[in-house]
């Protein structure tokens, strides 16, 4: 279970999170939606400790995320970064198997490579990309390599920052199914950021909408359409008119 309690984060005078409170029960899939630049990526990075919030608490299984053994903490997580964040000096398979080639989860090289190829297959990439460098792949392929890397060590908690942006609709469907599968079959806890409402419906158990630095609405995906919340309604229907100013 992950809890964010009254988390605040500003960059200079740009106040991004202004008291974000959110709970994600173990083994469920939460999707965060919200306008561009509202701080969704920042929220994920706060939980991982990549960004230090000014105030508020972040608890994972009841324990303060900023205290205790960092390595053991991070070993439970997988993260797909919005920009992929692949290591451009390493071939694709070594990116995917990064964790399996060093540190506490280290395996023999050949085994790690087989796991990497299997994970690549699950995100719809053929074995022949394994030995290419990330810079030789298309944007959507890089994204999927990032996804394969996030799930390679079968973490308990997985964060996906816009997993389907830049993918064709069929591949987006494959990825949505994969994320759903990871949650239902492996019992992982997932937090996904997406702008794609089809993905929201395919992936989410719960939905949370971030607006103006706070969670504007949260609830089960089934109640999303009948929420009566004007912000959420405007967002999911993509209307230019409404309480969220489209021109800033």
């Amino acid at each position: 279970m992950i809890e964010m309690q009254d988390v605040h984060k500003a960059f200079g005078d740009n106040r991004v999170l202004q008291g974000m409170t959110l709970t994600i029960p173990k083994g469920t899939s939460l999707v965060i939606i919200g306008g561009s630049g509202t701080g969704k990526s920042v929220a994920l990075k706060c939980i991982l400790g990549l960004i230090q919030p000014e105030s508020g608490r972040i608890l994972v299984d009841g324990k303060d995320a900023s205290k205790g053994d960092r390595d053991a903490f991070l070993a439970r997580f997988g993260m797909l970064f919005q920009g992929g964040a692949l290591f451009d000096s390493l071939p694709v398979w070594q990116n995917v198997a990064f964790r399996l080639l060093r540190g506490s989860l280290k395996r023999p090289q050949e085994e790690a490579r087989q796991i990497a190829i299997e994970k690549l297959r699950r995100v719809g990439l053929k074995a022949d990309v394994a030995d290419r460098l990330p810079a030789e792949l298309s944007g959507g392929m890089q994204k999927r390599v990032g996804l394969a890397r996030a799930i390679a060590a079968e973490p308990e908690i997985i964060f996906f920052d816009e997993p389907t942006t830049g993918l064709d609709p069929i591949m987006a469907g494959v990825i949505n199914d994969l994320i759903r599968e990871i949650v239902t079959e492996m019992g992982a806890t997932a937090m996904t950021i997406t702008h794609d409402m089809t993905s929201v419906r395919a992936i989410a158990d719960d939905v949370a909408m971030l607006h103006d630095g706070v969670i504007q609405w949260t609830g089960p995906v089934a109640q999303m359409d009948a929420s009566g919340d004007p912000y959420l309604d405007q967002f999911i229907h993509g209307r230019a008119e409404g309480p969220i100013e489209a021109v800033r």
Binding site: L48, L74, R102
Partner: peptide
């Protein structure tokens, strides 16, 4: 460049 493209953050999340 690694910092700007979030590769440093990725390293951290991969326990390195």
């Amino acid at each position: 460049t690694m910092k700007v493209t979030e590769q440093i953050d990725a390293l951290v999340t991969l326990s390195t």
